[in-house]
Structure formats: C-alpha cells, structure tokens
Simulated assay, not measured.
Amino acid sequence: MIDVTQSPALEIAIEGSLSRIRERAAELGPAFGALGEAIAGAARGGKRFRPALVAASFDAFDAPDRHAAAVLSVATAFELLHAAFVVHDDVIDHDLVRRGVPNVAGRFRLRGRQLGADADGAAQLGDAAAILAGDLLLHEAVRLVAMADVDADVRERLLTLLDDAVFVSAAGELADVENSVAPDCAPVEQVFDAAFNKTAVYSFRAPLQAGAVLGGASPEAIVLLGHAGGRLGLAFQLVDDLIGAFGSPEQAGRESGGDLREAKRTPLVALARESADATRLDATLALARTGPVAVRDARRALDASGARGRLRDMITDTLSEVRATSRGDDLTPAAGELLREIADGIEGRIP
C-alpha cells in the first residue's frame, strides 16, 4: 500500500512509549508489571501502516522543521490507538490468541490458573487485564498527542482528530456487535456504516489529516485528505471482507474462509442477502462452520448471488473517486501521489 519500512527513529519512539508503560507498571507490583510486559507484547509487530500514513502525509507538505519531533509522537499515538482497539476487540470477541501466541487475556488466564484460580476466576482475570491494557494504551495515545511539542492551536486540532477517531470507532464496534447478535441481518446501509466507522476514521482519515496538520497543509487540503482518507478506509475494509471469505491463507493471515466459518455478517453477506433466494443462502452460510467443503459451498453461493462482483465494483468505484480527489488543486503533487499510491496498494489486495 505504501512503504511501511519504518525509520529507526519511529521504532525508537514506539519502543520508548512501551518502555514507559512497562517501567510505570513495574513500580506498582508484580501483577501490574506483568501487565506492562503483556501490553508491550501486544503493541509489537504488525504492519505499522497507520504511523507510516502520519509520516508520509507530513512529508507530503511543506513540513515545518519544528514539528519533526512531534510527528514521531503523533505517529506513535496512532499505532498505540490501534493496539488498544485490537486488545479490546479480542475481549469483545472472546479471543485468547493473537498472531499465534496468547494475547493479553490469554496470558492472564494462564497466570490465573498458575495462581490456583478456577476456570471462571482465570477468565475474569484475563478479561480484566485485557480491558485495563486497552485503557492504558488509549491513555498513552492521548498523552503522546497532548504532550507533543507543538503550538496550542495545532495540539487542539490534533486532539480533535484523535477524539473523533475514538468516538467513531467505538460507535462502529458497538454497531458491529449489535448487528452480529440480532436475529435478523441488518439492512445493507447499516452494515456498511458499521464497517466504515469501525476502521476508516482511525486507520486512514485521522492519520492522514494529522500528518497534514503537522506538515502545515492548508485547511482545504486537510478537508480533501479527510474525504479521500474515509473512502480509502472503506475500500480497505471491503477488501478485507473479500479476503475473509475468498482470500488465501497468506492474504488472510489465518485459515482460508475464516469469516465464513465465524458466520460474520459483513457487507459482502449483506449484499448477498439481497438476492432472490436469501433463505437458501442463509442455510448454506450457516453450514460453513462445519468444514472446508461447506466453505467452498458458501463461496459458490456468494458468487452466484452476485455479491462478490458487486463488492468488487464498489471498491473499484471508491478508489476511482480517491484518484480523482488526489488531483485537486489544493493538494501538493506529493500528497496527490500518496493518495494514488495507497489506492493502488488497496486495489492490489483484492482477491
């Protein structure tokens, strides 16, 4: 999507914040010290594309030299914000493993059993630790922006972007859970809104705008980046939905067809249910959890419904809109090129 090979300076900034969390936690006893270590583990690895977007957007404008240090703090903040959402999301989904190893909740369940707790007690400890870990990561993200070496008006604009990212993402998460537990599939528009809110703002729109604010971009350029960032975020999420159903294990980072096995009500499924035979489709999708043959049947049903093709067309149209926006007169050539580069990367992920 973009070159996410991070500079040593950014990696040092991220590790510096994680070290601060570990050191503060260690001062408050062994249990909290263990939580600090788990937090650091949860925030390591990953693609780091959110901080890369902050840095790339900053570089795309006539960036003031005095903000060179601040961009590292703000970029780190968006990476820790992502880590916080991932930790909380695992609690919501009752997941105990992330990237093949125990996550925060999983680690503290094991700790609970080692302390002699029964299964319920260990689960309670694991959930409590993960909730607190996510809270501390959120706090650290806000602290980094609040203490960045910038003028008061720039700090206020950055905090407003962060505030919007947190609120919109939380709204999307709640809507996603509500859609998943309701007996009937929500309307297509409602499912798409949840998908957008859950990911697009904090992963694309806010990082691009934050980098531009630090880079001295004009108000008009920041508005354009906000619009394009939202569209890029939506396209990215829709591609993820296609990967979750049709992608290879390498693309998905797990067993192929994972979203179908978990019966997720994604925009892809919502579009498919608009087909003539929704009842038969529901029955086919409900069997996907039973094994590879049923997953293949579910894929065929989604293809036959036309939903896969419709979603691909939506992604293509959305990215075309971004490319048109990227040529706006209020953007620098470098900013326009950045948007097109991101669009090309997202399009290249379509399975």
Rank of each mutant, 00 (worst) to 15 (best):
R109S: 10
F108I: 05
V97Q: 06
Q114N: 11
L96G: 01
G116Y: 01
D93Y: 11
A119Q: 14
L115D: 08
I92K: 01
H88Q: 10
V104L: 02
A129E: 09
R107G: 04
I92E: 10
L96S: 10
G100F: 12
G112C: 10
A105S: 08
A130N: 04
Q114V: 11
V104C: 01
G116C: 07
D95L: 00
G126D: 08
G112V: 10
A105V: 02
L115C: 05
G134A: 00
A133S: 05
V97G: 04
L132Y: 04
A123M: 12
A117Y: 15
R99T: 09
A119D: 15
D89N: 00
L110A: 15
L115A: 14
V101W: 05
D93A: 05
A117M: 15
G112D: 07
D93R: 01
V104F: 05
G116K: 03
V101S: 10
A129T: 10
G116T: 01
L96T: 14
L125T: 12
L115H: 06
G112N: 09
A119V: 14
D120F: 15
G100E: 08
H94N: 14
H88R: 01
R98D: 09
D89T: 00
R109P: 01
Q124N: 12
L125D: 06
A133Q: 07
G116N: 01
G126S: 07
